[in-house]
Design a protein around this nucleic acid. Structure first.
Ligand code: NAD
Ligand code: NAD
Lengths: 222, 222
DNA sequence: AACATTTTGTGAATTTTATCACAAAATATT
DNA sequence: AATATTTTGTGATAAAATTCACAAAATGTT
């Protein structure tokens, strides 16, 4: 069963491939992708096998073709429009970030209870009052929303998003959101990431192998 | 072998416990923690078993004692000081965020190549020029750093952090950082999270069980 | 054109992670 | 005080994820 981890890896392969492409690579080997993304080459081939991606023996994978295949799987054929709820510190950072656009993801609007003093300075994404959210989502067929509101407001916003027809949520609030629909929830828990570092930093000896390197292999030119 | 996932769960249990505590709970059951954090109660008990945490049969776990035990494991006895490199959009959001402090994590300084116009408005954390980083880290024995610089500057900053003696890094740049030391690297890859949502939102039918709910059980009063 | 080399693709084996299931202990009830 | 109920703690079991390992195919070499 394909789950989050598979897609994270595919996404990583895709970005590595884009980099290989700009370096002028015509073909790549599972080894190259493995090294670039931090997994083993078996893992790469197994993943490809599961998604029905094939290369050719000895010849590796054609960069262009592989990219097409991954773009197809990851839904990169069309622009994904995303909204942000909560134009505060995190919300603003996302609103003003341009880095997602080259990967077909665009923040198209933000919503906040307070649109007066919260409007981002370098604005080029509109910030609407929360009341307009439901209508906007329905009218524009938005599928993905980001929750960047204070913790105690997060579940309420979640309910509103679900009610509006949102299918996937990226949540920055450090609480467990609930929904009885099958809306996908991905959490970004920075606190947990930091606490994790604290643990492993304080626990040298117990420390865990997180880097696997088998770096080698041929740069392509051809 | 204890790895990241164990610590993420322990961290979640701890936060759930803090909430139970404010609600006046004196004891909790594995079931309560399971429900609050989205895992099974066996998972909770197994985790505790691995870390040598025990409660009492029928009586569950004493909130206060369990918290102490978790705080101990997670190194919550002392304040963890963290530095941010890159006082841009993400960097500023972190610098001005107060939410980590109640969990013993404090952003004590930021560093940037451009300290002129990049100084956060509501500043109460100093932003120093990058040149001062190494000395600051050594002098203040900082163990954890956050990388919030543009992608192409990230590896350079990583090298500088490692050279300065940093033991753990939280990286926001969407590239794979390398280090030949055993520095811990945790990546926050928002792009990957969003691409993930895109995949599963577009793939109803292939969709994966991510919510497991077995919600039930008794509220405590006693 | 035969032989050597490289790399894929994938079942099998292994390792890791999570769940089951149940005896033992603690508490509650009659 | 005996009996019933609840919940832990953990080996056993199952499921999931990763690695192994090698035949088959493609390419390169002599
Ligand atoms: N800033 C960080 O670095 C950081 C780090 C970790 C976690 N978080 C989490 O991310 C979330 C946002 O943090 P922040 O620092 O950006 O907070 P913030 O206070 O800067 O911004 C929150 C914004 O949400 C708006 N808001 C409040 N209630 C709302 C509602 N019901 N609907 C719409 N908008 C609403 C507020 O007006 C404000 O603009 C919080 O849950 C926080 O715990 C933030
Ligand atoms: N902003 C977002 O929402 C977002 C989302 C996903 C990923 N990211 C990633 O996070 C990183 C930071 O993004 P951002 O939006 O905050 O960028 P930004 O451009 O707003 O800020 C980057 C800051 O780093 C400073 N800087 C540049 N080189 C430096 C160096 N060598 N040492 C120290 N400081 C240096 C710059 O002066 C600037 O202040 C990037 O890698 C970006 O891809 C950001």
């Amino acid at each position: 069963m394909v789950n989050k981890n598979y897609i994270i890896r595919l996404s990583n392969y895709r970005h590595a491939l884009n980099r290989f492409k700009t370096l002028g690579f015509i073909k790549v080997f599972s080894d190259n992708l493995a090294d670039a993304t931090g997994v083993t080459s078996s893992q790469v081939r197994k993943d490809f096998s599961i998604f029905g991606i094939s290369g050719n023996k000895k010849g590796g994978y054609q960069v262009e073709l592989l990219l097409e295949r991954l773009n197809d799987i990851l839904g990169k054929d069309r622009l994904q429009r995303v909204i942000i709820v909560g134009a505060g510190k995190i919300g603003k950072a996302l609103i003003n970030y341009k880095g997602f656009e080259k990967d077909g993801i665009k923040v198209v609007a933000a919503f906040d209870v307070n649109t007066a003093d919260r409007v981002p300075v370098e604005i080029d994404v509109p910030v609407y009052p929360l009341e307009k959210l439901k209508n906007y989502v329905k009218k524009n067929n938005i599928e993905i929303g980001v929750i960047a509101v204070p913790d105690n407001a997060a579940q309420g916003v979640m309910d509103l998003l679900v009610e509006s027809g949102i299918k996937g949520v990226l949540n920055f609030a450090p609480i467990r959101l609930r929904s009885d629909t099958d809306t996908i929830i991905n959490n970004v828990d920075l606190r947990s990431e930091l606490e994790n570092l604290v643990y492993f930093v304080n626990a040298t000896g117990k420390s865990k192998a997180r880097n696997n390197d088998k770096g080698k292999k041929n740069r392509e030119e051809q």
